[in-house]
């Protein structure tokens, strides 16, 4: 699905990613954990194609294509989805209008027909039920006046609507209470298939009780320094990151 090799990226001349390697195959769930400032959100931004970041070295292959050569919108159209840590408000633009525009742009890119209003509304009903999103929120302006939990659920709702190949969840658990967390996780798990993959970026292992990862990676100082299974997340929860830092520095 995605192959990241020796990825280096800078912002304002400062290097954040310093030779990151990661491969995610279809059907897999990978968790990326790490202390503050390790470069977790930078990785998400670079993959999604945020302009402020400059890739100085390395390659990223996404579904056989050179991801770094694609424009931001084309990455999305190829099936890369980023659930934002801080979802953006777009006043006056209804969620459904926003999603319909997105869905049709993706369809156009793939040479498919525009979705009919009837099919679209049926899809909205089906997918909003999945994340227990109030139908009223679907017709309200994008994220405007949404609570923190509603915004995060709305991200998963959008993901469900757009059916990406690779979803990157950037700290989707932050600011969620336990019920919202369960709903979000249920949404992600339901959408999981052998055709798609998920990268979960998180601070806490709590989310991983609900979304069980196949691999857990520790990102530290711009590199992945340790890889393990769910148990690694539990160990991090218990012991913190200092022992990892010590290990890295000892090398």
């Amino acid at each position: 699905m995605i192959k990241i090799k020796n990825l280096h990226a800078t912002i304002d001349g400062k290097e954040i990613l310093k030779g990151l390697n990661l491969e995610v195959k279809a059907g897999e769930v990978h968790a990326i954990m790490g202390p503050n400032g390790a470069g977790k959100s930078t990785l998400a931004s670079v993959l999604a194609g945020r302009e402020e970041y400059e890739v100085t070295e390395g390659t990223v292959e996404f579904d056989g294509k050179n991801l770094l050569e694609l424009d931001t919108e084309d990455r999305a159209r190829e099936g890369l989805f980023l659930a934002f840590q801080y979802p953006i408000e777009i006043p006056g633009v209804s969620n459904v209008n926003f999603l319909r525009t997105a869905l049709n742009e993706i369809r156009e890119y793939k040479g498919e027909e525009q979705i009919s209003a009837k099919d679209f509304m049926a899809l909205v009903r089906e997918k909003s039920a999945l994340v227990e999103l109030d139908a009223k929120l679907a017709s309200r302006a994008v994220n405007e006046g949404f609570s923190g939990g509603e915004k995060k659920r709305n991200e998963i709702f959008q993901m469900a609507m757009l059916e990406p190949k690779l979803a990157i969840l950037d700290e989707t658990d932050s600011g969620l209470d336990i019920d919202a967390l369960r709903i979000v996780a249920k949404g992600v798990n339901t959408l999981k298939s052998s055709e798609n993959a998920t990268i979960v970026i998180t601070h806490y292992q709590r989310l991983l009780d609900y979304i069980i990862p196949d691999f857990v990676h520790v990102l530290y100082d711009g590199k992945i320094v340790k890889t393990g299974t769910k148990d690694l997340a539990l160990e991090l929860e218990e012991r913190g990151y200092d022992w990892i830092k010590a290990e890295v520095e000892a090398k």
């Binding site: 999604a48 931001t72 919108e73 159209r77 934002f84 633009v93 997105a102 742009e105």
Partner: peptide
């Protein structure tokens, strides 16, 4: 960026945002 990340072109994004406003 949010719009682009959902597959919406910049031109359409501006149009959406401005018309929403």
């Amino acid at each position: 960026f949010y719009c682009l990340q959902r597959g919406i072109s910049e031109e359409k994004a501006i149009s959406l945002i401005v018309n929403g406003y």
